[in-house]
Computed example of a mutant assay.
Amino acid sequence: MSSGSTSHAVTSHHLHATTAAWSLKTALEHLAQLADDEVAHIAAETLEAPALLRSPAWGRRHALGGHGDPTGGLAAVTTAPRAPRRNRWADMYTRSLRRLGWLADQLPTGPAGPNPWWRIYDTIPRLQAGTAAVITRHLVDEDTCIRAAVGGGPQRELLRGVECPACRRRDVYVQTSGPQEAWTVVCTADCRCLGLGCRCRASGAVEGVAHIWPRSAVVTGTAVTAAYALAVVRR
């Protein structure tokens, strides 16, 4: 992230926001690929030859204005060219970027530029903790919406043999969206920080917020390597 204005202390809210941003970026990239693939499919459909229909050849009109009975001859009729269908993935991608653009415009410290995701991501370190929490909710909602549409779940891997520093349960996952240095660790047992004196001992911990740690604060090199290998296989 760029430096720009003065950065605030990194809190749990900032870690959640950064993680949500990387997860959304991955989902957007997948959505963009689906949109590109759909363009090719739609183009192929419009190039298909019109179908030939066999239609009865009707007789001459009677004096009273009615039609004669169908004759034995059949006339070949071609169907009208098929109108290109809408690219629903492209529509979703455009709507998502529009919403992110609106969100980026609400951040006074956000940089200018055409990429709304980058404008938001670059701003996160300079946000107040409460603002970072609001941004997280927006990013998570957008990410969840896209992943539900494309049939993808969260990108994370169970850290086998690693226990939560706070609750001591072994429901600890490393979230693997984005570059490895951006990975974070969460406990899925829904344990939350107790604030001062919490066993999580996380730097920048916020009372009541779901525990989250930088990867390097919890995970050993061996565990990271195993999680990375699984993440690569699943991509």
Rank of each mutant, 00 (worst) to 15 (best):
A35L: 10
A148R: 00
A227F: 02
A76E: 11
Q180K: 06
C200M: 06
P108E: 07
L31G: 13
C191W: 03
T222F: 03
T109A: 09
A223I: 00
A32Q: 13
L74W: 14
Y121P: 02
G66W: 08
D143F: 00
H62V: 05
A76S: 08
E45Y: 10
G130L: 12
V233Y: 05
A182N: 07
A57I: 14
Y173A: 03
A21D: 09
A9C: 09
E142D: 14
P84C: 05
H8S: 06
I146R: 00
P84I: 01
A166Y: 00
S2N: 12
G65Y: 06
V232A: 11
P125I: 07
G65L: 04
Q128C: 05
A57G: 12
V77Q: 11
C193Y: 05
D190K: 08
R147Y: 00
I146E: 01
V209S: 06
T11V: 10
G66P: 07
L24H: 03
L159N: 01
T18L: 14
G152R: 06
A35S: 12
H67T: 15
G197M: 10
L47F: 11
L34V: 09
H30K: 13
H67L: 15
W118K: 09
A227S: 01
G178S: 07
R54T: 15
A90W: 11
S203W: 08
R192F: 11
Y228V: 00
C200R: 02
R235L: 09
P214G: 02
Q155C: 05
V186M: 01
S96C: 06
P125R: 04
Y93H: 15
Q180H: 03
V186G: 01
A112D: 15
W102A: 11
A210H: 08
H62R: 12
T6I: 09
Q175Y: 04
A148E: 00
W213N: 01
C191Y: 03
T109I: 06
H41F: 07
V10F: 06
P108C: 04
T188K: 02
C191D: 08
V224M: 04
A226S: 02
P84V: 03
A21Y: 07
A226V: 03
R156S: 01
S216V: 05
Q155T: 08
H16A: 04
E142G: 01
V134D: 14
V206F: 07
P165I: 00
H16P: 05
L53F: 10
I146T: 04
A63V: 13
E207K: 12
A132L: 09
A49L: 14
G73R: 12
L196A: 11
A202D: 05
G113R: 13
L230D: 03
Q175I: 11
G73A: 12
G59H: 13
R192N: 10
V172K: 02
W117V: 10
T176R: 00
E45T: 15
A20T: 02
R88E: 15
C187A: 04
A35C: 10
